[in-house]
Simulated scan of single mutants.
Amino acid sequence: MKKIAVLTDFSERAYHAAEYALLLAARLQANVLLYNSFLVPSAEPLAGQIVWPMEDYDEIKNGCEADLEKLKARLEGKLADQTNGFRPKIECRAHDAQFDLTADEFLRDRDLLLFVLGNHQKGFSGLILGNHTREVLNRSALPVLVVPEKAVFEPLHKIAFATDLGQSDLQVVQSLTGLARPFNAEILLTHLCESTPENSRAVQDFLHEVTNKVNYPHIYYRHLEEKHLREGLHHMAETVKADLVVMVHRHKDFLERLFSRSHSLDLAEHTELPLLIFPSPAKFFPVI
């Protein structure tokens, strides 16, 4: 059975993302996995200098599991008035490790479609708590749906995919058809580049590949000309009037990470639209 995993820290921001995921799962006829990754004192840098009693681990784990059950009950209350349609089953899982240490555990489950999380808190407190969005995007081998705190779930009418026309983006488009089909939504391919003969040929070649290899009737293309990519992405998110923006998160080498930042991370932090981010390279593309 298809599943959507919700990564939660039990904040209201995370609950909002979980509620969005639940309503999306109902439309996709998928179940929901609530997941919390907690750290025990022995995992902390100075833990080797201190003797921690085993009771600490049990207390932390039991508290985490209790919080997951409370979150599950709160979400199930949202389904109480639903008399028809698919009702997702909700599963809870707590793990005593950081997210990146357990990613392989998720990848063994080929029914898992994507991860969902709320965007991290901005400002000084967000800096102190750490940017969980950045950590998950850099470690995930599955698509990640970032849900802003002001985003309200609505049936999808338009999905905007900011593509750079790479060959792997064809697989992203194919995956998106499974997300669009239950809503009969449009998939709008957008490409930010200057109008040159070389770019025009690349666009035509890519669209020809899409036509031949992707079986979905509502795929359209829109060219956006913007000198600066960062501004262009924000302009796209604001003007195409999409319900969901899609990007590919390209991993960078050390020097690139040092002197620049990911465009997908930047957009995830500032957009008010739900943002679905595919990893690159990807081990496999889930059939959403």
Rank of each mutant, 00 (worst) to 15 (best):
A26P: 00
L179K: 03
Y216L: 09
N62V: 13
F284W: 13
K150D: 15
H132F: 04
V203C: 03
L7P: 02
E186R: 03
C92A: 06
C92S: 06
E135K: 14
V32S: 02
N212L: 13
Y57I: 11
L273E: 01
P45D: 07
L113C: 11
E272C: 11
V287Q: 07
V144F: 06
L7Y: 08
L129F: 09
S11H: 10
E231L: 09
L71Q: 15
I60W: 10
P41T: 02
V32H: 06
E272D: 04
A30I: 12
H120E: 09
P281A: 13
H251L: 10
R257K: 15
N131D: 15
C64K: 10
E19K: 09
V51D: 02
P88K: 02
E149D: 10
N119H: 08
H223Q: 11
H132D: 07
P53L: 04
R181Y: 09
T83L: 06
V136T: 05
L145T: 12
G130W: 10
L258W: 10
L224G: 00
D9I: 13
Q49V: 07
L275T: 01
Q82A: 05
L258G: 13
G123K: 05
L68C: 09
T271L: 04
N215A: 10
K2R: 14
K70T: 11
L22K: 02
T177C: 14
D56T: 13
V246M: 03
Y20K: 15
L23C: 12
E44P: 02
C193D: 06
C193A: 15
L127V: 06
A43C: 07
D67P: 03
E76W: 03
Q171H: 12
L68N: 01
P155A: 14
R257T: 13
V146Q: 08
L229M: 04
C193Q: 09
P88R: 12
L79R: 06
S200D: 12
P41S: 01
L24F: 07
E209N: 10
R257V: 03
I159W: 08
L113N: 03
E12D: 15
D253A: 01
N119C: 00
H249E: 01
C193E: 14
A17I: 02
